[in-house]
Nucleic acid binder design. Structure first.
Length: 470
RNA sequence: GCUCCCUUCGUCUAGCGGUCUAGGACGUCGCCCUCUCACGGCGAAAACAGGGGUUCGAUCCCCCUAGGGAGCGCCA
């Protein structure tokens, strides 16, 4: 039988970190078994669902590369099917109409809470045969009164629930629309889902769903409940921890594969290995190896991983993502050195693409002014002579890294300067600041025309501020 | 309150009864490398929640306690 897993988000917001990891685990499970991954949008809550959220989720999955084999299916388009199943359950005596008012339910709940009992429906309408069709009613599933439901969870092991703990849940609202526990069951059954991999907040729903499945004569799928992800304060992950939306990480300069790698290591590991390519993940991942405990999201480690990926990825790949960020800065990547060359020069000195883009601005656009401290420290009259000499030399050489390097080194030597004493002023002259790749590369990439013009400008700058020095 | 789940360095984790004076990674702190920023290299501090068992022997098995989490909706 083909392994089929699914991701079933409700479109009430963007794709967040927790959902993304659940999707990733489910996706990996399907991939590693050569199975199929289904995307289903659980949008039965008309109030809270939105198409913007659907798009946000689709966009997030696309960016992460979690492609699905089927779907997206929308539950709102399957109402006829749910109605059919509800009728069947009614007919076979597995469900019944309930006319209890919300007020009665409310009172019942309060009463039970007062008596320190678990609030649950008391089965008031369960045995009534006289419920007329025309009064407002909901439909409840007739949960078995006794016995137990063992849940054989791939991650949690065997968890057993007593039916006595379960009450008769509502499967159809008074307006006739189906509720969550009914729709998941029907969909997982109809879509031949073999493995339900989802957040562990659903573990408690599982015995109910199994009972419904059985009432329908279906075989329950395999379940795997993955632990949740906590924020730095040990509480549920939220906006206060910086990032929740997957797409926020794109904006912040993360590579999707870095996020994926971080996420897969949260709750799962393979010995001491930290970095996994997608292929390695698919080959090594096993849902059974996922931890049972919740884990805390650690932004620092994600940042480190991102750096690793930026550093070791194919420059062309990084360049592709970098151009998006340059665009956001209003820069034209064609107005300067080749992106791939820039990436090669910057790969080792950026933790994020945002940082890389910000540190590459001078390659593509003239800077307005020098960094004040940098100019004050490095563009002083004592380097005027060496800079002029350097300008002369640079004007005469072939424009290669080697020749530029040689020019700088020899100029420094002939003026009895340590390399840094000349390289740093030159750096400020051509970049406006103190941070850049090695000076020869930097000058090379900026280009002859631009470099010489900037050097001239720096010399003029020093002359303008020459003061009392010779 | 009830039911269920969880518990190794600050964090992510390795460990699947003796190989543990508990390993790796992030972060932190030193040192080295160095034209800036980085990369890199070396080193340090840092954990088995507590208590009972079982066993010749428990991080690993069982029980209890504590702490954390989830669920208990005409939300999903």
């Amino acid at each position: 039988m083909t392994i089929r897993s699914r991701f079933a988000p409700s479109p009430t917001g963007y794709l967040h970190i927790g959902g993304a990891r659940t999707a990733l685990f489910s996706w990996l499970h399907a991939r590693m078994h050569g199975g199929e991954f289904v995307l289903r949008i659980e949008d039965t809550d008309l109030e809270r669902s939105s198409t913007e959220s659907v798009n946000a989720i689709l966009e997030g999955m696309a960016w992460l590369g979690l492609e699905y084999d089927e779907g997206p299916f929308y539950q709102t388009q399957r109402f006829a099917r749910y109605a059919e199943v509800i009728q069947k359950l009614l007919k076979t005596g597995h469900a019944y109409r309930c006319t209890c008012s919300k007020e009665r339910l409310e009172a019942l709940r309060n009463e039970q809470m007062r008596n320190k009992q678990k609030p649950r429906y008391d089965g008031h309408c369960r045995h009534r045969a006289d419920v007329p069709d025309d009064v407002s009613h909901v439909v409840r599933f007739k949960n078995p009164a006794d016995g137990a439901v063992p849940v054989d969870d791939l991650i949690r092991g065997n968890v057993t629930f007593n039916n006595a703990e379960l009450d008769d849940l509502i499967i159809a609202r008074s307006d006739g629309t189906p509720t969550y526990n009914l729709t998941v069951v029907v969909d997982d059954m109809d879509m031949n889902i073999t493995h339900v991999i989802r957040g562990d907040d659903h573990l408690n729903n599982t015995p109910r769903q199994i009972n419904i499945l059985r009432a329908l004569g279906a075989t329950p799928p395999q379940y795997a409940h993955v632990p949740m992800i906590l924020g730095a304060d040990g509480k549920r992950l939220s906006k206060r921890h910086g990032a929740v939306s997957v797409m926020q990480y794109r904006e912040d300069g993360y590579l999707p594969e870095a996020l994926i790698n971080y996420l897969v290591r949260l709750g799962w590991s393979h010995g001491d290995q930290e970095v996994f390519s997608l292929d390695e993940m698919i080959a090594l991942f096993d849902i059974k190896d996922v931890n049972r405990a919740a884990s805390t999201f650690n932004p620092d480690k994600l940042l480190w991983l991102n750096q690793q990926y930026i550093k070791s990825s194919d420059p062309a790949h990084v360049a592709h993502h970098l151009s998006w960020h340059l665009g956001r800065l209003g820069l034209d990547p064609s107005a300067g050195p080749g992106l791939v060359e820039v990436v090669k020069a910057q790969q080792e000195r950026a933790k994020t693409l945002v940082e890389m883009a910000a540190n590459s601005v001078y390659f593509y656009r003239e800077f307005d002014s020098y960094d004040e401290k940098a100019a004050a420290k490095n563009l002083k009259s004592d380097v005027l002579t060496p800079l002029r000499a350097l300008l002369t030399r640079l004007s005469a050489i072939d424009w290669t890294c080697e020749q530029i390097h040689q020019a700088v080194v020899e100029t420094a030597e002939s003026h009895e300067l340590k390399l840094g004493k000349l390289a740093q002023p030159l750096r400020v002259a051509v970049t406006g600041g103190t941070v850049s790749p090695p000076i020869d590369q930097t000058v090379y990439l900026i280009g002859r025309e631009r470099s010489l013009a900037r050097l001239n400008r720096a010399i003029a700058h020093i002359e303008g501020h020459a003061g009392g020095q010779a």
